[in-house]
């Protein structure tokens, strides 16, 4: 049964302990993620939207193996996630290209970690640089590229070592509107071509609707899943779809989910005393 799922998260919790002084007798705890349960299908394009501080990026970094969870289970291909590995690729908002490496060498990085022979590394790297349409820039350094180009290379780098899952953390938040549009189209094209499972974190509802099969809506204080929206828009999609009535109705649906105040926690948050709130975790129980 689990086989059709690439990633399974069960009752995932992340609690930070905050000590105000070195020997604080009762450290406060901040519930960054609370009881997250989610199954991600193989080959699915899943986006996670939510306000800043809702833990959506944190969730992604737990999947990447870069942040340790407090409790619960997360599995990829049936295996518990214990740390980072080449079965997951990550694309970050800040590109994180190695500035001392040329484009080609950047894309080769994961392949070096994988200990592939040099010739093979080069040819695979070139293939993925071509996939993102930047073959002419293979020998350039990152500082010579625009933001959009850098992000394409970051995508190529994450894809080159052939991970099962691509994790994207607000990848297009730092580029201008026009570039953003073309990067979205490019991402869809690459996703359709490579059949990767993509988990994409964004704060843009429009971006989420445009790209995804499903949208996970998260709310903050503590970070939890408010609802999941199935997006049944036809594929392949292009920019024009953003003007349809269906698109607008999905957008509204997500918007409404984000807005609904339904729990006490939400009310307390409005008096802006977040720390008071999380210091009494029992209040957050439904």
């Amino acid at each position: 049964m689990e086989n059709e799922y690439r990633i399974v998260a069960e009752n995932l919790n992340l609690v930070y302990r905050i000590r105000r002084a070195k020997k604080d007798p009762n450290p406060r705890s901040l519930h960054a993620l609370k009881d997250i349960s989610l199954n991600v299908r193989s080959g699915e394009f899943l986006t996670v939207v939510g306000p800043s501080g809702c833990g959506k990026s944190t969730f992604l970094y737990i999947l990447a193996g870069l942040i340790k969870k407090t409790s619960g289970n997360v599995r990829i291909n049936g295996q518990e996630i214990k740390g980072p590995a080449l079965d997951r690729g990550i694309v970050m908002q800040a590109y994180a290209l190695f500035p001392w490496r040329t484009v080609l060498k950047n894309v080769e990085f994961g392949l070096e970690v994988k200990k592939l022979p040099k010739r093979e590394r080069k040819s695979i790297a070139r293939e993925f640089i071509e996939l993102v349409g930047l073959s002419d820039f293979a020998d350039r350094y990152p500082y010579e590229l625009s933001g959009g180009m850098k992000q394409r290379i970051a995508i190529a780098r994450a894809l080159a070592y052939n991970p099962d899952v691509l994790l994207m953390d607000e990848p297009f938040a730092a580029v201008d509107e026009q570039t953003r549009g073309s990067l979205q189209a490019e991402t869809l094209r690459i996703w359709e071509k490579t059949n990767k499972t993509i988990i994409f974190v964004t704060h843009s509802i429009e971006e989420a609707v445009y790209l995804s099969d499903r949208i996970v809506v998260m709310t903050s204080g503590p970070g939890k899943i408010r609802g999941i929206v199935d997006v049944a828009l036809p594929r392949p999609r292009d920019e024009a779809i953003k003007n349809t009535k269906e698109f607008a109705s999905y957008r509204n649906k997500v918007w409404t989910l984000l807005q609904t105040p339904c729990e006490r926690t939400e009310k307390v948050e409005r008096i802006f005393d977040y720390t008071e709130l999380v210091s009494r975790p029992q209040d957050n129980a439904i």
Binding site: A85, W100, F109, E112
Partner: peptide, 29 residues
């Protein structure tokens, strides 16, 4: 050293020695 670069390298499962030689050393050069 920009911590996002270290994260990026770690996300690819790089070992400690590799991290030093391939990221920390060139970044601090």
């Amino acid at each position: 050293v920009d911590s996002t670069l270290i994260r990026a390298a770690e996300s690819m499962g790089i070992a400690r020695v590799g991290l030093f030689l391939k990221v920390v050393l060139p970044a601090s050069s």
